[in-house]
Amino acid sequence: MGEEEIELTGGNASGSVVRVGDTVRKPWIDNTSVVQGYLGVLREHGVDAPAPLGRDGHGRHVVEYVEGTPALDRMPLGHGDLLRVGRMIRSTHDVSETVPIPDPGGWTMLLPAENPNLMCHNDVAPWNLIMGDRWVFIDWDGAGPSTRLWDLAYAAQSFGMLIDGQPVESAAMRLRAFVDGYGADDALRGALPAAMSKRTAAMFELLRYSSESGFQPWAEMYANGHGEHWRAAAAYVARNQAAWERALKRPE
Results as ranks from 00 to 15, higher is better:
residue 67 E to G: 05
residue 68 G to M: 03
residue 70 P to K: 06
residue 70 P to S: 08
residue 71 A to E: 05
residue 73 D to H: 02
residue 74 R to I: 00
residue 74 R to S: 13
residue 75 M to G: 00
residue 75 M to V: 04
residue 77 L to P: 00
residue 81 D to P: 00
residue 81 D to L: 01
residue 82 L to Q: 04
residue 83 L to I: 05
residue 84 R to L: 10
residue 86 G to V: 03
residue 86 G to I: 04
residue 87 R to A: 12
residue 90 R to M: 04
residue 90 R to E: 13
residue 91 S to Q: 14
residue 92 T to V: 10
residue 93 H to N: 04
residue 93 H to C: 07
residue 93 H to I: 06
residue 93 H to W: 03
residue 94 D to R: 09
residue 96 S to C: 08
residue 96 S to H: 04
residue 97 E to C: 00
residue 102 P to V: 13
residue 105 G to L: 12
residue 105 G to P: 07
residue 107 W to M: 12
residue 109 M to S: 15
residue 109 M to V: 15
residue 111 L to C: 07
residue 116 P to I: 11
residue 117 N to T: 14
residue 118 L to C: 10
residue 125 A to C: 14
residue 130 I to L: 09
residue 133 D to L: 02
residue 133 D to P: 12
residue 134 R to H: 15
residue 136 V to Y: 09
residue 136 V to E: 12
residue 139 D to V: 07
residue 141 D to A: 05
residue 141 D to C: 03
residue 142 G to Q: 04
residue 142 G to Y: 08
residue 143 A to N: 06
residue 148 R to C: 01
residue 149 L to E: 10
residue 150 W to F: 13
residue 150 W to K: 12
residue 150 W to S: 15
residue 152 L to I: 06
residue 153 A to I: 12
residue 154 Y to C: 10
residue 155 A to R: 10
residue 156 A to R: 07
residue 162 L to N: 08
residue 164 D to K: 05
residue 164 D to E: 15
residue 165 G to F: 07
residue 167 P to K: 01
residue 168 V to Y: 03
residue 168 V to K: 01
residue 168 V to M: 01
residue 169 E to L: 09
residue 171 A to Y: 02
residue 172 A to H: 07
